[in-house]
Design a protein around this nucleic acid. Structure first.
Length: 590
DNA sequence: TGAACCCGGGG
DNA sequence: GTGTACGGGTTCA
């Protein structure tokens, strides 16, 4: 099956992992939930005296304490692996453990249970997995019969399968609200339209008004409309739900109205409603078994714009103006009941279709990153790139038996925030209008510096013989030449894999395959290119200001040297910043 | 000058 | 849910 999402539930005080999947062949592909009750949470304890520490831990009522050999920034070290009975025991007991006199530190105590599962089992979401299952016993199967989801218990192995990209069904939605006074208030302003569009051709507007338009389906009241909406989601059975600012507008609004009107919203493949996850000050809307993606967040990540309205983003991607009705006029269009209402119907459908189009263009990259980083697509669609890099490294650390560094404490964090790595090289532009401009691109400079100079927290040393290390310009940071550092070796692998994909891409004759390979190599490039920045990112587990500083110092050095060389060949630099420089070619001189 | 506060998208 | 954004801009003391 294709692994779409993952969570866990508690049954009889035991954690049960739920893998939300879809049969591979999409045509009749059913939703599947595979349950696994055989996985337990654990953390690592860095002990003072190992045996005394083990004794102290036994008194705390943990499930298991084992001695394990692991690496800590490349150095072999003995840890105690402490296994718990339930994921929630971890936050309950970790402070007590840290307070024990024989405990120096605790590690990997803040890795969410489902993420740990994916990492330890070597599973990648949005890819195929092979599962050995049996029909779930009725008492563990809590899903309403008419949902049509198959519930299975894991019996035996679960393995990743290398397969082509799965065929996914995407449904986008957009709601319109009747709000004559100010911003919509879900306590009084009803939903008047719900527009739906899929990547398989569905175009539909649900409305509580009559319309001659063939894509409009009229419902007698708002409650009926919400019921119909739920039925369409169940019928269409999409793998991915998308919206624009739907984390903080459409889904919360739908939930509020459904609550007031007492309409059950069985949108999830397990029959559940919409769940809201707190993410800082904002929410993420979650529908079990279908991955909800809010494109607004994706667009903010990948486009550099002054504004991120749907209209602005659409213009940027497709070069076309979208017809727009100002939000505070929607109620007037609705009240018109004639041609203006028709316009509103078109506008509403257009928004949903635009979301589908933007999704088809922008989602593939995040899907590929999901298959590389190996965390749920839902999470990946909401993670900053620094976080994506971090979870990629956490998985790699686990494979290499490296214990993951802790997140910074509040004081470490504020301390890091007060410092800044020196920036890239910037040359103020030469004033005037220049012709024959050439751009020298250095964007791939930083990953190659990290590799060639072996810049990594585990290779950074205070002193060493000059022939055994790379010494950075300016501040003179020292990095051992051998062995390859944790981060450099990983970037090395990424770049090697990227070269392989690019070769495959050139050789391929199949346009569709070429496209997929191109997105895959693009995803790897993004991952590699964002790795240098994270050394200076205050929340990063492998944060090291010295590394960030050394990289930019080498970078400035390279850019200046290259500019000097270019000048010898007749290219006069007129402007430079971190990623490269612009030069004008002066033919008559050379 | 730095700390405190506000804002985004959505209708 | 083994959790609590983020970065940039403005205002104010």
């Amino acid at each position: 099956m294709v692994l779409l999402d993952i969570d866990y539930v508690t049954r009889d005080d035991k954690a049960v992992i739920r893998l939300f999947g879809r049969e591979k062949t999409r045509a009749e592909g059913k939703s599947i939930i595979v349950q696994d009750n055989g996985f337990k949470p654990y953390i690592y304890v860095d002990p003072l005296n190992l045996d005394q520490c083990r004794e102290q831990l036994k008194d705390l009522g943990v499930a298991l304490v084992e001695k394990v050999k692991m690496k800590d920034l490349g150095r072999e070290k003995e840890f105690l692996k402490v296994t718990f009975n339930h994921p929630q025991d971890v936050p309950k007991l970790r402070d007590k453990i840290l307070d024990l006199s024989q405990v120096k530190d605790i590690r990997e105590h803040d890795i969410p249970f489902y993420r740990r599962y994916l990492i330890d089992k070597g599973l990648f979401p949005m890819a195929e997995v092979e599962v050995e299952v049996e029909e779930a016993s009725p008492q563990t199967c809590t899903i309403p019969q008419d949902i049509g989801t198959q519930v299975m218990d894991l019996k035996g192995e679960i393995r990743p399968i290398n397969s082509d990209f799965p065929d996914l069904k995407i449904l986008s939605l957009d709601i319109e609200v009747y709000n004559p006074d100010g911003m919509p208030n879900s306590e009084k302003d009803p939903i008047i339209m719900i527009s739906l569009s899929s990547n398989q051709g569905l175009r539909k507007v649900l409305a509580t008004a009559e319309s001659p338009l063939d894509f409009v389906e009229t419902l007698q009241d708002e409650a009926e409309m919400l019921r119909r909406f739920t039925a369409i989601v169940e019928e269409e059975d999409p793998d991915i739900l998308i919206g624009y600012n739907s984390d903080n507008f459409d889904f919360p609004y739908i939930r509020d109205r459904a609550n007031i009107l007492e309409v059950p919203l069985t949108l999830g493949t397990d029959g559940s409603g919409i769940k809201f996850m707190k993410r800082g000050f904002t929410n993420a809307a979650l529908v079990k078994g279908r991955v909800h993606v809010d494109l607004y967040l994706i667009m903010r990540r990948y486009l550099q714009l002054d504004r991120y309205t749907l209209e602005r983003v659409y213009l940027e991607l497709f070069g076309e103006e979208k017809y727009d009705i100002p939000g505070d006029e929607i109620h007037q269009y609705w009240d018109d009941c004639g041609p203006k209402l028709e316009k509103l119907c078109h506008y509403s459908l257009d928004d949903a279709v635009a979301v589908t189009e933007i999704g088809e263009k922008m989602i593939p990259l995040t899907l590929e990153l999901t298959r590389i980083v190996g965390q749920p697509f839902f999470d990946m669609a909401r993670m900053a790139t620094g976080q994506q890099v971090e979870w990629y490294l956490i998985r790699k650390a686990n494979q290499q038996k490296e214990v993951v560094p802790n997140k910074p404490s509040a004081s470490q964090y504020s301390n890091r925030r007060s410092k800044r790595a020196s920036g890239g090289y910037v040359k103020d532009p030469v004033k005037g209008l220049h012709e024959n401009i050439v751009y020298f691109d250095f964007r791939s400079l930083y990953p190659s510096i990290i590799i060639s100079k072996n810049v990594s927290p585990d290779t950074l040393v205070d002193e060493c013989k000059p022939e055994e290390c790379h010494i950075s310009p300016e501040r003179g940071y020292m990095f051992l030449k051998e062995p390859p550092g944790f981060v450099p070796s990983i970037i090395g692998n990424i770049l090697t894999e990227r070269v392989r994909l690019k070769t495959l891409m050139k050789e391929s004759e199949d346009e569709e395959e070429k496209k997929i390979l191109n997105v895959q190599q693009e995803a790897l490039k993004r991952l590699a290119n964002s790795m240098y920045g994270v050394y200076g990112y205050s929340r990063f587990r492998w944060y090291r200001l010295e590394c960030a500083d050394a990289i930019t110092a080498w970078g400035r050095d390279y850019i200046k040297k290259t500019m000097a060389k270019a000048e010898n060949f007749g290219f006069k630099p007129v402007y430079a910043d971190t990623d490269g420089f612009y030069a004008v070619y002066q033919e008559e001189d050379q």
